[in-house]
Amino acid sequence: MRILIITDAWYPQINGVVRTLSSMQEELIKMGNDVRMVTPEAYKTVPCPTYPEIRLSLVTPKAIEKVVKKFMPCAIHIATEGPLGLAARSYCRKKKLPFTTAFHTRFPEYVEARFRIPENWIYPVMRWFHKHSTNVMAPTPTVVENLRAHKFHNACLWGRGVDVDLFKPGPKAALPKDKIQKDKPILLSVGRIAVEKNIAAFLDLDIDANKVVVGDGPMMNELVRKYPDVIFVGAKHGEELVSYYNCADAFIFPSLTDTFGLVMLEALACGTPVAAYPVMGPKDVITDPTAGCLDHDLKTAVLKALGLKREDCRKFAEKQSWKASAETFRSYLHEFDPKLIDRSYVEPTTAEEENIPVSAVAGIASSTKTSD
């Protein structure tokens, strides 16, 4: 099958969405599929407001049409709700081509965390984006239930995996000796350093331990100044990242908004137990009490996690697989005859033609609650 995947999230970004999609590309190719990725790399971009590390593509549906006509896919998957995703959606709707989408990120909750815009003003826009998708692929049962509660009637479960050949017990990272307290446990957090990740809940823990943070993001400089005793090492990749998981006695995942949290599986594959809140994401990943501890008191979760066995964590992670995830992904794709692509294309002209919930967008500005 020729599969076209459109995503606004791609390298050099390092996050769960990028890791998931790159893993899908690799596994789908191994399965004998021809996969083409449409990413910001091919277009002019501008920095995302308040988050310059993310680049927004300057793209139109016509640009997507050129890619589609050249590749002639049998299935189209729109992975993100950004500029590329919007252009691809518009093109598919005008051409009457079936497509699938994914709900990787709790965007309404992130917007509320960053800009204090209530999430119920954003969900109508998200429903509009996904409502014509054959399947909206979500990473956990909890996310599927949440989407259905918000009137997403086409949500389905698409699980995640971990590369257990890369993420495995092995050499440990060398931490700065002048900042490490000997004979104290090492607590690790890995991820984007941004407000929606709730990293302060980890950094503020009153616990006698060394705290290490791997990652980068808009709050990096502020937190480095505020927490001088915490070891911030920046973003790490590949075997170097693995070495940080291996040097930790427990992995702390303080996020309250993640849909999954691939870093938890990566930590477990290295044998590092997880401590997190019992919320969407962690409660779907940590399904075995021998692999991690969930508690509304994060300190309690950490102390319990420190008592778990590393070999049990590794065994739990070994049951997860990117191959199984890719097989599920492929089964949800809507295959069509490429001959449909030859139908004439009409450029959209107004918001009304695409039935964009303009009232919802206006409500964000006017502080009026909207509905789909």
Rank of each mutant, 00 (worst) to 15 (best):
I5T: 04
A9R: 06
Y11V: 15
P12H: 13
P12L: 12
Q13S: 07
G16E: 11
S22N: 11
E26W: 13
E27Y: 05
I29C: 05
K30S: 12
P40H: 05
Y43S: 03
Y43V: 01
I54Q: 13
I54S: 13
R55I: 03
L56A: 07
S57D: 02
L58W: 11
L58E: 11
T60E: 13
I64K: 06
V68A: 12
F71E: 11
P73M: 05
C74G: 12
I76P: 00
A79D: 02
T80A: 00
E81R: 03
E81Q: 10
G82E: 08
P83C: 04
G85H: 03
L86R: 10
A88E: 02
S90F: 13
S90A: 14
C92M: 07
K96G: 00
L97N: 07
H104Y: 14
F107N: 00
I117C: 11
E119F: 06
E119R: 13
I122S: 01
Y123G: 00
R127Q: 14
F129K: 02
H130Q: 05
V136H: 01
A138K: 01
T142S: 15
N146H: 07
L147A: 05
R148I: 03
A149L: 07
H150E: 12
K151W: 05
H153V: 11
L157E: 06
W158A: 12
V162K: 02
D163N: 15
D163S: 06
L166T: 14
K172H: 07
A173W: 00
L175I: 08
K177C: 04
K179D: 09
I180C: 14
K182M: 10
D183R: 10
K184A: 06
I186L: 08
S189T: 14
S189F: 15
V190D: 02
V190Q: 06
R192M: 10
D204C: 10
D208E: 15
A209H: 05
V212A: 10
G215W: 04
M219A: 15
N221V: 09
N221M: 10
F232Q: 07
V233T: 14
G234P: 02
E239Y: 06
A248Q: 08
D249S: 03
F251A: 01
I252S: 01
P254D: 10
L256E: 04
T259V: 06
L265P: 00
E266S: 04
A269D: 00
A269E: 01
T272F: 00
P273N: 02
A276V: 02
P278C: 05
M280Q: 12
D284E: 01
D295G: 03
D297F: 00
K299Q: 09
V302H: 03
L306P: 04
G307P: 11
R310M: 04
R310N: 04
E311N: 07
C313V: 03
R314P: 08
R314E: 05
K315H: 06
K315Q: 09
S321T: 10
S325L: 09
S325A: 15
L333D: 00
E335P: 00
I341T: 05
D342E: 14
D342R: 10
D342N: 13
R343C: 03
T349Q: 15
A351M: 12
E352A: 13
E353D: 11
E353H: 07
E353S: 08
E354K: 06
N355G: 15
N355C: 13
G363H: 11
G363Q: 11
T368A: 15
D372T: 13
